[in-house]
Lab assay of single mutants.
Amino acid sequence: ATVHVKGVTYHFDNPEQAEKFAKRMAKELNGEVHVDGNTWHVD
């Protein structure tokens, strides 16, 4: 799974980790999470 945060890409072997990371980053950055298959975007 892949997480894109403000133009930076993070790779996770575990999709659950990717989801938790994306949601945590969105919270910290006051952003929104969008999911597209195995790819998470934090804007």
Rank of each mutant, 00 (worst) to 15 (best):
Ala1Cys: 11
Ala1Ser: 09
Ala1Ile: 13
Ala1Phe: 15
Ala1Gly: 10
Thr2His: 09
Thr2Cys: 14
Thr2Ala: 08
Thr2Glu: 08
Thr2Tyr: 14
Thr2Gly: 03
Val3Ser: 01
Val3Gly: 00
Val3Ala: 03
Val3Glu: 00
Val3Trp: 01
His4Arg: 13
His4Cys: 08
His4Met: 13
His4Ser: 09
His4Asn: 10
His4Trp: 14
Val5Phe: 07
Val5Asp: 01
Val5Ile: 11
Lys6Cys: 15
Lys6Asn: 15
Lys6Trp: 11
Lys6Arg: 13
Gly7Phe: 05
Gly7Asp: 06
Gly7Tyr: 04
Gly7Trp: 05
Val8Ile: 13
Val8Gln: 11
Val8Glu: 09
Val8Trp: 09
Thr9Glu: 08
Thr9Gln: 08
Thr9Gly: 04
Tyr10Ile: 05
Tyr10Phe: 09
Tyr10Asp: 00
Tyr10Ala: 01
Tyr10Lys: 02
His11Asn: 07
His11Ile: 09
His11Pro: 04
Phe12Arg: 00
Phe12Gln: 00
Phe12Met: 03
Phe12Trp: 03
Asp13Asn: 10
Asp13Arg: 08
Asp13Ser: 12
Asp13Ala: 12
Asp13Ile: 09
Asp13Lys: 10
Asn14Val: 07
Asn14Lys: 08
Asn14Tyr: 09
Asn14Leu: 09
Asn14Ala: 07
Asn14Gln: 08
Pro15Asn: 14
Pro15Lys: 11
Pro15Leu: 11
Glu16Pro: 04
Glu16Asp: 12
Glu16Arg: 10
Glu16Met: 10
Glu16Ile: 11
Gln17Ile: 08
Gln17His: 10
Gln17Trp: 06
Gln17Gly: 06
Gln17Asp: 15
Gln17Thr: 11
Ala18Thr: 00
Ala18His: 00
Glu19Thr: 04
Glu19Pro: 01
Glu19Asp: 06
Glu19Asn: 05
Lys20Val: 11
Lys20Tyr: 10
Lys20Glu: 14
Lys20Leu: 13
Lys20Ala: 15
Lys20Phe: 10
Lys20Thr: 11
Lys20Asp: 12
Lys20Asn: 11
Phe21Pro: 00
Phe21Glu: 03
Phe21Arg: 00
Ala22Pro: 00
Ala22His: 00
Lys23Gly: 05
Lys23Tyr: 14
Lys23Cys: 12
Lys23Phe: 13
Lys23Gln: 12
Arg24Ile: 09
Arg24Gln: 14
Arg24Asp: 11
Arg24Gly: 06
Arg24Val: 07
Arg24Ala: 13
Met25Gly: 01
Met25Ile: 10
Ala26Gly: 06
Ala26Cys: 06
Ala26Asp: 01
Ala26Gln: 04
Ala26Met: 04
Ala26Tyr: 02
Ala26Glu: 03
Ala26Phe: 02
Ala26Arg: 03
Lys27Ile: 12
Lys27Val: 10
Lys27Asp: 10
Lys27Glu: 12
Lys27Gly: 06
Glu28Phe: 09
Glu28Tyr: 10
Glu28Arg: 11
Leu29His: 05
Leu29Ala: 04
Leu29Asp: 03
Leu29Thr: 06
Leu29Pro: 01
Leu29Arg: 03
Leu29Gln: 04
Asn30Glu: 07
Asn30Arg: 09
Asn30His: 10
Asn30Phe: 07
Asn30Cys: 12
Asn30Trp: 05
Asn30Leu: 06
Gly31His: 04
Gly31Leu: 15
Gly31Glu: 04
Gly31Asp: 03
Glu32Met: 14
Glu32Gln: 14
Glu32His: 15
Glu32Gly: 07
Glu32Trp: 15
Glu32Asn: 12
Glu32Lys: 14
Val33Ser: 05
Val33Trp: 13
Val33Ile: 14
Val33Tyr: 13
Val33His: 04
His34Met: 07
His34Trp: 15
His34Leu: 07
Val35His: 13
Val35Arg: 15
Val35Ala: 08
Val35Ser: 10
Asp36Ala: 10
Asp36Gln: 12
Asp36Ile: 15
Gly37His: 05
Gly37Pro: 02
Gly37Asn: 06
Gly37Tyr: 03
Gly37Asp: 05
Gly37Trp: 03
Gly37Phe: 04
Asn38Lys: 06
Asn38His: 08
Asn38Asp: 07
Asn38Phe: 10
Asn38Ser: 07
Thr39Glu: 13
Thr39Pro: 02
Thr39Gly: 10
Thr39Leu: 06
Thr39Val: 15
Thr39Met: 11
Thr39Ile: 13
Thr39Tyr: 07
Thr39Asn: 14
Trp40Thr: 02
Trp40Arg: 02
Trp40Gln: 02
Trp40His: 03
Trp40Met: 05
Val42Pro: 02
Val42Ser: 02
Val42Asp: 02
Val42Lys: 01
Val42Tyr: 02
Val42Asn: 02
Asp43Cys: 15
Asp43Ala: 13
Asp43Gly: 11
